[in-house]
Design a protein around this nucleic acid. Structure first.
Lengths: 135, 135
DNA sequence: TGAAAACCCTATTAAATCGATAGGGTAAAA
DNA sequence: TTTTACCCTATCGATTTAATAGGGTTTTCA
C-alpha cells in the first residue's frame, strides 16, 4: 500500500507545480484544497524541503514553493524520499539492500526472482515519469 | 513491502512444485527447510488450500501437495490470495476497487495517474510468470 | 517595533497490522 | 485404537501509520 504520506506529498508537489511564477503557497491553502490534515502535511512539506524539492519563505506572504522545474523531478527520487525503498523486499533493493536472514541463497530463491522483475518494472515507470508528466 | 505471509507462501509453493509425483509433504518438513515458523506456515498453507492451490491429506504419511501444474498457476492469483490487491492504492485496483474519500476527481489526480502505470507494470510481470517460471 | 503570520520541531497517541505463539480439536491411516 | 498430522480459534507483543497537541522561532509588514 502507498502511504498517505507519499500520496499527500505527491498531491502537494503537483499543486505547487501548477502555481505561477513559483510563488510561495501557504500550507493551509494546500491542505484545504487537497483535503489533507494541515499538521500532517506540514511534516511532509518539511521532509520535501529537507530533501531539496521545496524552498520555503517565512513570515507574512510566506509558504512553500518548488525549487526545480517539474520536468527535472523524476518520480524515482520522490518515491524514495517519501515512501522509501521501491523494491518489495530488501534483498532486491538497489538503495536499501539487505540480505534476508532466512534465505541461504538468493540466486535460487523464487521470491527473489519474482521481486526482481517487479522492482525493475516499477523502476521503469518511475524513471519515465517526472512531476511534469503528472500535471 | 511484501508480507512474510506472501513470501513464505511463495516459498512453500515452490518447494511443493519440486516434489516428485505430488507426494504429500508435511508442514514440518517445509517449515524446517525454508526456515519458517511452523505454526505460521500452517495458517498460510490452509489459506492456499482453501483457495484451490493445494490439497491435503490427513493422518500418517499425510501433508500438503499441489493440485495443479506449476505452469497453470499464474502469479496474479497467488499474489491476490496471499498479499491482496496488486495496486498500491484502492482507486486503481481491478479486483479491490474503492474510491478515495479525499479525491474529488480521479481523472485529474496525479497519484491516480502514476499508480495506474505502476499497477499495469506489476500486473504485466505477474501475468507473465507462473509458478513454473520460478523454479 | 511589535504583533501577526507562517514556518519549524518534538512528543504523544489511537488504531491497525503483522508475525508469531498457544492450545487444543478432529479426521484419517496404519 | 492410537498415532499422526491437519484444522481452527484466540491472543499477544512489536511495529508502523496517521493524526493531534502544543508550543518555538523567524520573518514580514503595518
Amino acid at each position: 500500500m502507498l502511504s498517505k504520506k507519499t500520496k499527500y506529498g505527491l498531491k502537494a508537489l503537483t499543486y505547487l507545480a501548477k502555481v505561477d511564477d513559483r510563488q510561495p503557497v501557504q500550507i493551509a491553502e494546500i491542505a484545504k484544497h487537497e483535503n489533507i490534515s494541515q499538521k500532517f502535511l506540514e511534516s511532509i512539506l518539511l521532509t520535501l524541503r529537507r530533501n531539496g524539492f521545496l524552498g520555503s519563505k517565512k513570515g507574512k506572504g510566506g509558504g512553500y514553493y518548488l525549487i526545480k522545474e517539474p520536468k527535472d523531478i523524476p518520480m524515482t527520487t520522490v518515491m524514495r524520499v517519501l515512501e522509501g525503498p521501491i523494491a518489495m523486499v530488501p534483498c532486491v533493493s538497489l538503495n536499501f539492500y539487505e540480505k534476508c536472514d532466512d534465505c541461504p541463497n538468493e540466486d535460487e530463491c523464487s521470491v527473489h526472482k519474482l521481486m526482481l522483475q517487479v522492482r525493475d518494472s516499477a523502476l521503469d515507470v518511475y524513471r519515465n515519469n517526472t512531476l511534469a508528466d503528472l500535471l
